[in-house]
């Protein structure tokens, strides 16, 4: 088919011939959502379950997130796995700042999300007070399946298919301005 026809013919007609149309934004979001590379930020018990999520049985690779990058500069999503002590909080912020945009944060486990059972002088009570969190995963520690579900939810968010509590559609990350 000559290129000229793409602009002249009706798009429904073209779709019936197997040509898909999408906005570039959606295409980028689709690609991005299927290759969310996590930064290794294993802190405590949850880190073991995070490792388990990549093993042969759970296989996070099915969702394109198996490549745990040691360098934050190569990562898209930071999985905060475990209790965050106040001594570690500035370092986590620095790691987050080193990640390139667009970036997301999964707060894995009760300790990271709310301080969990450690309500004391040493533990940050919510990771959200240090970095903006996209997904909270409950559990102590969450099962690998829970983490995989969180990754799937994050993929929806990246693709702009997520809704807030009131049912409003959340905007997908604006790829061109960030």
């Amino acid at each position: 088919m000559p290129l000229k026809e793409l602009f002249e013919r009706d798009w429904q007609e073209l779709e019936s011939e197997g040509i898909l149309f999408s906005s570039l934004e959606k295409l980028v979001a689709w690609g991005r959502s299927n290759s969310l590379w996590p930064a290794t930020f294993g802190l405590a018990c949850c880190a073991i379950e995070m490792m388990s999520a990549t093993d042969g049985r759970n296989d996070l690779a099915r969702f394109g997130s198996e490549v745990f990058r040691a360098s934050p500069r190569q990562a898209d999503v930071m999985i905060v796995a475990g209790r965050l002590s106040k001594k570690m909080a500035p370092i986590m912020r620095r790691v987050y700042d080193q990640m390139p945009d667009p970036k997301w944060v999964i707060s894995m486990g009760a300790c990271a999300s709310s301080g969990g059972m450690f309500n004391n002088y040493a533990v940050v009570q919510n990771v959200d007070s240090v970095v903006p969190v996209d997904i909270f995963v409950p559990g102590c520690p969450p099962r690998p399946e829970a983490l995989i579900f969180a990754v799937m939810q994050l993929q929806k968010k990246v693709r702009g298919e997520a809704f807030d509590q009131l049912g409003n559609q959340l905007p997908m990350v604006d790829a061109w301005t960030r």
């Binding site: 309500n119 004391n120 002088y121 040493a122 009570q125």
Partner: peptide
């Protein structure tokens, strides 16, 4: 020194 008895546990 956190483990002294006069140091509060600082629960939120």
């Amino acid at each position: 020194h956190p483990l002294r008895k006069d140091f509060p546990i600082e629960e939120t």
